[in-house]
Design a binder for these strands. Structure first.
Lengths: 253, 253
DNA sequence: GCCTAGGTCCCGTGG
DNA sequence: CCACGGGGCCTAGGC
């Protein structure tokens, strides 16, 4: 029942469950409930979930989730900064989570609580992650020869009317190169995107090369790439876990 | 400790925790752990999470999640059909979840378990939801006058080279109309998409109208729409709840 | 099995 | 504050 950080109640009465949940919310704890429940949501969309046995989580940042016994995503949820509370109405226990802007409301009716607990969790660390598109850009700026010998980056996130070019540069002959990065397998949409960028420059009558950089590419995308006279470089996103993020071109110009 | 559906252990020893977790996985229960842990992931990307107090969930479908005290998304996870197990190495308790294709591995080291539990959850119901783009399409097919008087739908999900046109139809004068649906506020990307569809047909020298249908639109998107001679219809997605799918056999296996 | 597109996407970032 | 785009996106549907 008590371990400083945890409070737990098995098969609590409605009133016990109510008190423990409200206590957990007020103490800004991680509230965890195993219960038979049903749920109604109304907001950007609208949904109804009939009774079943599920995991309910209320986080100290206001996040509210109902998880079924399947899938990664919660079946119903509210985002951080939502306001949650418990209440008893006509002898039944309810949880409510409300968000403002957009106005959204999730109501969960607890038919039978099997386990109610809260956890005064301390967690100061953030995830360190590598392998994003941005990391690929950093790597190419620092090692331009990965694109090809003589490649020189000129600009990053270069704004054009149809969007932002990931990396703009020149090859050893001085021809403009447009680099489109994808951190995972590139599909036809990536090729279309690259083509739009290249077309914008080709209208200006410059010899322009378009290069799609990704760890792999779908068959259809490769076909379209070749039809359009564009190029593909197979490059894996880097794997070094670094806390120091954000390499800019300024470091090298 | 026991309520038929639940097993719970507070501040278990490493061996107790190990046994309860393995028992829960084997019984295809929903395993819920509150613990101080760290995590390493390697797969499509790579990540490292230093020690902190978190919620760990293992679902009977193979889903594995590590939740921090913030945000809706798990900080680390594995999708359904992953294989999870617990093991003790050099006196420490570890959880491992492995996925094949793509090959991915998540390892969690439990430094101190505060609560270990599992829940033999039965849940046969699926979410009923309304307000999707597809629902808007259904509504417009059944009530074409929502677009305008005299509008006649001709095709749905009509394939063109740049994608699929949500609804193709004709106005009362026989002019072709291309309808692009968005269930939420439409941005510039929606306008670009519609423009590409319309351009494909305009090349064929037909008087073609393009209509963006959404509950609202961003300022920039509206400007671009007007510049391109396209139209906007403010329509809310319908709200009637329909069951996506009935109960399937899988729920009983 | 691969691929495409939608989502109450979530989430960070930049205007 | 809103708008935009990436993501280990997840997930459903098509082929």
């Amino acid at each position: 029942m008590n371990c400083m950080k945890c409070k737990v109640s098995e098969n609590p009465s409605i009133k016990e469950a109510y008190r423990l949940i409200e206590d957990g919310i007020r103490k800004r704890a991680l509230v965890v409930i195993l219960a038979c429940c049903s749920a109604s949501y109304e907001g950007r969309a609208r949904s109804r979930l009939d009774a079943g046995e599920r995991l309910i989580v209320i986080k100290p940042d206001g996040t509210f989730m109902v998880h079924q016994d399947r899938k990664v995503d919660p079946v119903n949820w509210q985002p951080p900064k939502s306001r949650s509370r418990a209440y008893i109405k006509r002898g039944s226990l309810y949880l409510e989570s409300i968000r403002r802007d957009p106005e959204e409301r999730l109501e969960v009716e607890i038919h039978e609580a099997h386990l109610v607990s809260y956890y005064l969790a301390r967690d100061v660390h953030d995830l360190m992650v590598a392998g994003h598109e941005n990391d690929m850009g950093d790597m190419i700026i620092m090692h331009p020869h990965l694109i090809e010998k003589g490649f020189r980056p000129v600009a990053r996130e270069y704004a054009v009317t149809s969007g932002f070019i990931d990396i703009l540069g020149k090859d050893e002959n001085g021809s403009l190169m447009i680099i489109e990065l994808k951190s995972r397998k590139a599909g036809v949409s990536a090729v279309k995107q690259l083509k739009r960028y290249v077309d914008e420059f080709r209208e200006d009558r410059v010899g322009v090369r378009g290069v799609l950089v990704a760890p792999s590419i779908t068959h259809d995308a490769m076909e379209m790439l070749e039809e359009e006279g564009l190029e593909f470089r197979e490059i894996e996103p880097p794997r070094e876990l670094r806390s120091n993020r954000g390499v800019t071109l300024d470091n090298f110009l």
